[in-house]
């Protein structure tokens, strides 16, 4: 039995891709001053920092409770406001439900632009506009939540069975009735699931919003970091990590049950 011939390799493609990867890497490494030498020479600094960071300052823990609750409030408000506003945006961004090509196109691009800016950019902008504090954080997370849910959910809406919405239309229902009774019920469980997912992301990012003055536990983190109180920084980060993991576990178990 003859061995099948190996398919010829496209050397141009492989060479081009490899060259591009190498060029990008050299350029980037040079640009950011990447050096393993520096990393290893600074290991001494690292061990000193670790010494300063451990043990964490457990006496500081009670003072974290208030800011931590503020973080949760911000995440809840952001998820609820963003979750509600995401519904019309997702519906209009779904090709099969949207009101005409123009609306679809405009909404889709609006959604993509929202998605390009990271959560902390929104937090900085809102902190500059409405002043430092949790209100800025809640607004920032609302926008971020709209971006997350509308993108994911518009894709589920595009995958629904169009028989039901068409039946509502044929029975004389308006566009709104078609969406409400024909389309949304089919994708409801995905909506709940994505909203919970957005809540997980929001809890995580609301922990760092305070770094730019948008309220929550991050504000304490920023002051302790600026004063190089690394024992306290470690305490805050440990508390954040435990809280995030617990909330994620709860949210994930609910999501699994829904699926």
């Amino acid at each position: 039995m003859a061995i099948p011939a190996k398919p010829p390799r496209n050397w141009w493609l492989w060479g081009g891709a490899g060259g591009f990867l190498l060029a990008m890497t050299v350029w980037s490494a040079h640009g950011i001053g990447f050096s393993l030498n520096e990393l290893f020479c600074n290991m001494g600094m690292g061990s000193r920092l670790l010494n300063e960071s451990f043990p964490p300052d457990f006496a500081f823990l009670p003072r974290l409770f208030g800011p931590f609750m503020e973080t949760l409030y911000i995440a809840i408000i952001g998820t609820v406001v963003g979750g509600i506003l995401a519904i019309p945006i997702a519906v209009l961004a779904a090709r099969n439900l949207s009101l005409g090509k123009l609306v679809w196109f405009a909404d889709r691009n609006f959604m993509n632009i929202l998605r390009t800016l990271p959560d902390l950019f929104w937090a900085m902008l809102f902190a500059a506009a409405v002043g430092f504090g949790p209100v800025a954080g809640a607004l920032a997370l609302s926008v971020f939540t709209i971006a997350v849910i509308s993108k994911l959910w518009s894709e589920s809406l595009e995958a629904i069975d169009m028989g039901l919405p068409e039946a509502v239309r044929a029975a004389g229902g308006s566009w709104l009735q078609m969406v409400k009774f024909g389309a949304l019920p089919q994708a409801l469980s995905q909506y709940v699931s994505y909203t919970l997912y957005a809540f997980e992301l929001n809890v995580r990012s609301s922990m760092v919003l305070g770094l730019v003055g948008a309220g929550g536990i991050g504000m304490i983190l920023e002051t302790q970091r600026a004063n190089f109180e690394y024992e306290r920084v470690t305490m805050i980060i440990l508390a954040v990590l435990v809280a995030v993991l617990i909330i994620e576990q709860i949210s994930e178990s609910i999501r699994k049950r829904l699926a």
Binding site: G31, I32, G33, F34, S35, E38, L39, N42, M45, G46, L49, S53, L120, R204, S205, M207, V208, L211, L221, R225, F228, Y230, V233, I237, V240, L241, V244, L245, E248
Partner: peptide, 28 residues
């Protein structure tokens, strides 16, 4: 799973004092 729970900005807080202010800390 534990590593995923860490926002990168919190890690950067540790890398900045080690390798100094700048993009290298960010990349790490």
């Amino acid at each position: 799973a534990t590593a995923r729970a860490f926002p990168e900005i919190l890690l950067a807080i540790y890398f900045v004092p080690i390798v100094g202010l700048g993009p290298f800390a960010g990349a790490l």
